[in-house]
Every structure is written in structure tokens, then in C-alpha cells.
Design a protein around this nucleic acid. Structure first.
Length: 212
DNA sequence: GAAAAGATGTTCT
DNA sequence: GAACATCTTTTCA
């Protein structure tokens, strides 16, 4: 197993989800070089998680990638929108981390064209991130991230001032896992989904220091 | 700034 | 036919 796979399988999923906050998401496409800091994640804990696509060992051709190797991509469509997970834990252990929001760093102009929006609306939600990056199909589904154009840079990390923990967004609250505290985000960052502007940290966007 | 409704693909009953 | 790991637009405050 390489170091990339080890990172996504040597700690509990909720710990990895928090460690991903502040890391750089990169996508190289024919639209240019996209980059942004991850500011919001959600952990999905596999067969015992009532909100997971793999609940009760559900396994279909559609969600097969979730059962793949740690560090693989799982790209899926929910209603009219695409989202993506990083697959974590060993092969056949279907856990994943949904990347819900990023703070854009590079290629903001192209993101605005792809989204037909500006400001925080570029990337403050999982479907919005995919639209901003111009990903509107599943051709990257199942690929190992370190060999795909869409990847997370593990060589550096921006340090959040404070990590907030809440129940997940958009999942059925009546399920056994509906109120589990599996959503993590950078306090004060304006790109966190469903956040209120009066809670923003205008000086540092919730990071410990200025731009590296 | 909140709430409601519509668009929409896959899975399960 | 119903539910869903979502987003946009409209309507009302």
C-alpha cells in the first residue's frame, strides 16, 4: 500500500474527515488548473450508517466505487447534481468522506463561468463545487485520486482556528444515524454551506494565519 | 432571509 | 410510485 492509500485508511473516518479541512483540492482539466482549500466535509460510516449509500450492505453497480480502495473517487448524482466522496478504509469497507465546500484559490474566473454565479455561491455546497470545476459526468468515478486529475494535496495543510461539529445536512433525520455528529467545517469560513454571513470571520476566514 | 416548489437520475417498495 | 448525501427560482417578509 502506498502512502496515499495509508493516509485514507489508518485512522477512523471521522478523524480523517477533520484532517482534510485546510487541505488543497486540485483539478487539472482542459479548462485550466483549479484549486481550493477544503472547508467542509461529512463522514459516511458504511453499512451501519442509515444515511450511507452502503447502508445494510446495499451494493449496486452504481455505488460499486464506494467499496474500492482508500483514496479512490466515488462520484454520484443526486437529483440534478453531481457530488463526490473520497473512499476511505480498506477495500470492501464502504466508508467515504463527502467534500461539501471549498474556498476557491485558483481559476476563479472559470468557476464563475461554469456556475453563472459569483462570490460565496461559487463553491458553498457539494453540487456547486462540482459545477464550478466543470465536472458534469462520472468519467472520474472509481479512479485512484493520486492518479487522477482530481486529487487532494496531502503535502501541506492550512490550519483551521476552530473545527465545528454538527449533524449532517440533507440526510433523513429520522434514521438511526440521522443526528450523528459527522459534519465538520472550518469555523468562520464564508464558503461553508448554509452558513450565515454575520458569522463570518472577515479577517482570516477562520484560518490560523494569513495566506501561508 | 426564510420557505416552498420544481428539475432531475437511481434505487427500493 | 416514493425517497433521496442538491440547487435554483420565486414568493413573502
Amino acid at each position: 500500500m502506498d502512502a496515499y492509500q495509508a493516509y485514507f485508511s489508518s485512522q477512523p473516518t471521522t478523524v480523517i474527515a477533520q484532517d482534510l479541512l485546510g487541505r488543497l483540492l486540485i483539478y487539472d482539466s482542459d479548462q485550466g488548473h483549479f484549486a481550493g482549500y477544503i472547508v467542509e466535509t461529512e463522514a459516511y460510516l458504511g453499512v451501519k450508517d442509515s444515511a450511507s449509500h452502503a447502508f445494510n450492505h446495499r451494493r449496486t453497480n452504481y455505488s460499486e466505487s464506494l467499496y474500492g480502495d482508500p483514496g479512490d473517487l466515488y462520484i454520484y448524482q443526486i437529483r440534478a447534481n453531481y457530488c463526490f466522496d473520497v473512499v476511505v478504509q480498506a477495500r470492501n469497507e464502504p466508508q467515504g468522506i463527502l467534500i461539501r465546500a471549498i474556498e476557491p484559490l485558483a481559476n476563479l474566473d472559470q468557476m464563475a463561468k461554469n456556475r453563472h454565479q459569483t462570490g460565496v455561491n461559487l463553491t458553498n455546497g457539494p453540487g456547486k463545487v462540482m459545477q464550478a470545476l466543470g465536472i458534469q459526468d462520472r468519467h472520474l468515478d472509481g479512479l485512484p485520486m493520486d492518479q487522477a486529475p482530481l486529487k487532494i494535496d496531502l503535502s501541506q495543510r492550512r490550519q483551521p482556528q476552530k473545527i465545528m461539529v454538527t449533524p449532517r445536512i440533507g440526510v433523513n433525520q429520522d434514521g438511526d444515524s440521522g443526528k450523528d455528529l459527522c459534519r465538520f467545517y472550518v469555523w468562520g469560513n464564508p464558503y461553508v454551506s448554509k452558513s450565515k454571513r454575520r458569522d463570518d470571520d472577515h479577517d482570516h476566514h477562520g484560518w490560523l494565519k494569513k495566506e501561508n
